[in-house]
């Protein structure tokens, strides 16, 4: 029981448990980049807790000090002097070793749109633009239905029939197609933003944050203005999301 009262072991147990919970307790697995951030927070919190009063801090340090200086811990000390450098060496090797996979990418999910675009020779101001088809509520169901047809004919192959980015082509694409069901995608954006992304596709992405590897085609060559607005209506209708409105001036 004395062993369990050791501050050092308690702290180590919390860190190990946190690691196991983060690594194995959440499905699908949490990416390593996030696990590292979370473990940093856990380590900091544990350090703060054990050192937030002097008794606890002394108790935490006692086994470390004893391992470093006590003559009867010589064997343990020797073992640690072998094991710790080996672990550090393994970590260095694992970070430096070549892996047969693409490196992780630091992507910007929402590239910044331009203030205006040229659409088939016409200048469209993205800033402040609303979907013109929403003005006539009576025809809205018809427009949504038309948008659905356009989606199924053109978009479903990548974005999927559930609009969740799991289309037939999706496994071949990196980055994967956008998941419209996710509250972090179209629900956060104005409809004019979607218009820009659909009209200009991957080739129309801004210079910053490049190089982009979006496979999204520029649909302005195939869809006219009305049809793009129709498919946007469908995206929001089918996912149950609401487009972001412009702030009142």
């Amino acid at each position: 029981m004395t062993l369990f009262r050791s501050r050092f072991l308690q702290a180590a147990a919390v860190v190990v448990l946190a690691f196991c919970a983060l690594r194995f307790g959440i499905q699908p697995p949490v990416p390593w980049s996030v696990i590292k951030i979370y473990l940093f927070v856990v380590l900091a919190a544990v350090f703060i807790y054990v050192s937030s009063d002097s008794d606890s801090w002394r108790s935490f340090l006692a086994p470390i000090r004893s391992t470093l200086v006590d003559p009867d811990r010589r064997v343990l000390r020797g073992a640690l002097m072998i094991v710790v450098p080996l672990l550090v060496g393994y970590y260095a090797y694992s970070q430096a070793a070549a892996r047969p996979e693409a490196p992780p990418e630091l992507r910007a999910v929402h590239p910044a749109p331009p203030a205006s675009i040229q659409f088939r020779g016409k200048e469209l101001s993205i800033q402040g633009l609303d979907n013109p088809l929403r003005k006539d509520a009576a025809t809205l169901p018809k427009q949504v239905a038309a948008g659905g047809e356009i989606y199924i004919r053109n978009c479903v192959y990548c974005h999927g029939d559930n609009l969740d980015g799991h289309g037939r082509f999706a496994p071949a694409l990196n980055p994967p197609p956008a998941n419209f069901q996710d509250p972090g995608t179209i629900a956060m954006l104005q409809e004019s933003y979607l218009f820009w992304r659909i009209a200009k596709g991957g080739p129309g992405l801004p210079k910053e944050s490049g190089p982009w590897s979006s496979a999204m085609p520029a649909w302005e060559d195939r869809l006219d203005e009305t049809r793009i607005w129709q498919v946007i209506l469908y995206l929001y209708d089918a996912t149950g999301q609401h487009p972001r409105r412009w702030e009142a001036k």
Binding site: P29, V109, P175
Partner: peptide, 15 residues
């Protein structure tokens, strides 16, 4: 920041 494998396991870039 995800590897392709992690993205596949998550079913996209969003967890």
């Amino acid at each position: 920041i995800v590897t392709l494998q992690e993205a596949r396991a998550m079913g996209g870039t969003h967890h």
